[in-house]
Structures are given as structure tokens and as C-alpha cells.
Amino acid sequence: MIDNQPKENSQEKIKYTAKDFTSSQDVRWCPGCGDYSILAQVQRTSPDLGFKKENVVWVSGIGCSSRFPYYMDTYGIHGIHGRAPAIATGVKVNNPNLDVWVATGDGDLLSIGGNHFIHACRRNVDIKILLFNNKIYGLTKGQYSPTSEKGKKTKSTPFGSVDFPFNPLSLALGAEATFVARSLDRDPKHLQAIIKRASEHAGTAFIEIYQNCNIFNDGAFELYTEKDTKPDNVVFLEHGKPMIFGKNQDKGIKLEGLNPKVVDLANGEASVNDLWIHDEFDESPARAFILAQFTENENMPLPVGVFRQIKRSTYDKDFHEQIERIKKVKGEGDLKKLLFAGNMWTVN
């Protein structure tokens, strides 16, 4: 038998640098595109993730973001539109020793590839999905996407779109994703930390990254990324900590029943003790869902960080454990027994 499973070798861990993960291909995104930052954060983080470079596989679909694998000096498949989670599932299930990552966009993952996305989440295949959400179709030159806000005027909707958008985090939570997070292209430190967290998670890890498309949807996330507006509009989620934000750390989030509310910490309206303490590991997805819905409420800030992380066995692990179990019960496959089976008779 040819053994196609890479073996953990006992040699000392190789020390990589970001350069080891940089391929020789010229990067061809538009100058100023948020994709550059995401690529840089991934390349910077990769040496610290504890992988062997040869075990890393980047899979993508179609779209600007899906060029990503070409720029990583790892194994990679630039697939077809929407199918990256399914391709990645095949790679991972066939060889669970590999570290499999998906780079995808809002059109790729949530429009044409929506089905594969939700099924990857529910199965909890041990793959990491980075959604570059720019709320627009870039590669096809500027049509509205399934995450564009209602009323969006684009080339294909000159009078404004009339369809309601997806909330990617709500969708992931609804699809039973075990790791759900959000970060920003313009916040390198945060993005790096979230990538690390995702890589440590066993199971499908989903990160929505707000990514600026400076050509077709410039400034879509300005409120959350610019120095002067960011503090009052973004709340950083930290496990076990109360939700506080604001330029002067003077605003908090309180949960009244199922209703979140921004409270003023400076004027005595509420104290830190009244605030919602973030629990990433809450078994129930209810609070994470409320958090995900902040974007639908103009009074609420944008949560970034890990919304939810729970433990559940992974599909690929269960898949192979079952095979091993059956091998034990039935014995390793024997061709002779396979062929010479059923009702047989002899002709002399």
C-alpha cells in the first residue's frame, strides 16, 4: 500500500517566517483593496499557528478574494464558484491531518455557495472559513451582493435593490457553526488574534471579515474602521468581560430580557455591574444570536471578536473513527472475502 497520509515526524518544529508563506506570484488585487491586509495578517500569523507548511491547503471559489490561494506558498485549489467549502470538505475528510482553510467572499459563500456553507457548518468539518465580506460583487464589476443593504444602488440595481440581505453570523449560528467570529481588515492586530483563535478551534471556524472594496463599495465600513468613529461604533467582545465601548469607555451594553440596550456609564444611568458579560462558551446560541443581530439595530455598535465557540466532535474525526471501529469489528478488508461472497456455486 502506498501510504498517502503524511506522518507527524518527530523532528524539531521548523521555524517559519511570513516569507515562507508568500508565493512568487504577483498579487493582483486593486491597489488599496482590503484583501491585501487580510493576506498580510494570514501570512504574518501562519508561522505561529504550529503547522507544517506542507500540510496547509488553501481552498477558494471565485471572486476577488478567491485569488487568495495563489498568493500563499502552501498547497491550494482555486475552485469554482461557491464550491470551496465542499472541495475543502473533500480534502479534509480524505486526509484529516491536513490544515484546511477557505478564502471566500460574500457572493461566493452566501449566494452561489450558500448550501455548501451551511452544510459545512452543521457537519462541523475541521476547516477554517474566512469570509471577505465587502458587500458587493467586485470581480464582476459592481453588482449588489447578498450582504448588500436593502435599497443599495449598483449597476444591476440602478433604482435600489429590493431584497433583504443575509446576516452572515446569524446564518452561521443558525447552521450550527461551532466557532463564529468577526473582524476587520483595518484592524491587523485583532484580525491576527482572531485567525489564531480560529486555527486553534476543532471544527468549522467561521470568521466574517469586513473588507473594503475601494473600487465598487468604498467606505462601506468606514464607521467601524476610522479612528474617530470606530470607538463609538465598535464593541470588542472579550470572554468574561462586560461589554464596554466608546471613546472614553463610557458606554456599556445591557441585556434587558432579550433586548440589548446601550447604557451610559458616565451619567450614572448604569454601572459596570449591570452590563452584559460576554460568554463565548455559552452552550445556548441565543445570546450569540442577539449579538449577531446588533447590525440590524442602528442603536447598537458593531460587535467584533469571537461570538461563540463550543465543543462538538468534528465530522472528519468521527468519520475516520467509524472506519477504524469497523475495521476492528470486521477485520481489515480482504479482497478474497469481498469477491467470494453471497450465494456462490461451482461449475466443474
Binding site: 498517502n4 491547503v57 481552498v59 498547497y75 485549489i77 475552485g79 469554482i80 464550491r83 465542499a86 472541495i87 475543502a88 470538505t89 473533500g90 480534502v91 479534509k92 475528510v93 480524505n94 486526509n95 491536513l98 448550501n115 455548501h116 452544510h119
Partner: peptide, 21 residues
């Protein structure tokens, strides 16, 4: 692998072929 649809069935197989199946 019983996939979620015909397309996932073949694309997962493509992923598996890439990784040596």
C-alpha cells in the same frame, strides 16, 4: 461521503483526488 447536493458530491471528490484518493 453523502454530500448535500450533486455539486458538493463531485467537488468533494475533486478535493479528495487532490489529496491523494
Amino acid at each position: 461521503f453523502q454530500a448535500e447536493d450533486e455539486i458538493a458530491a463531485i467537488t468533494s471528490a475533486i478535493g479528495a483526488a487532490f489529496s491523494g484518493a
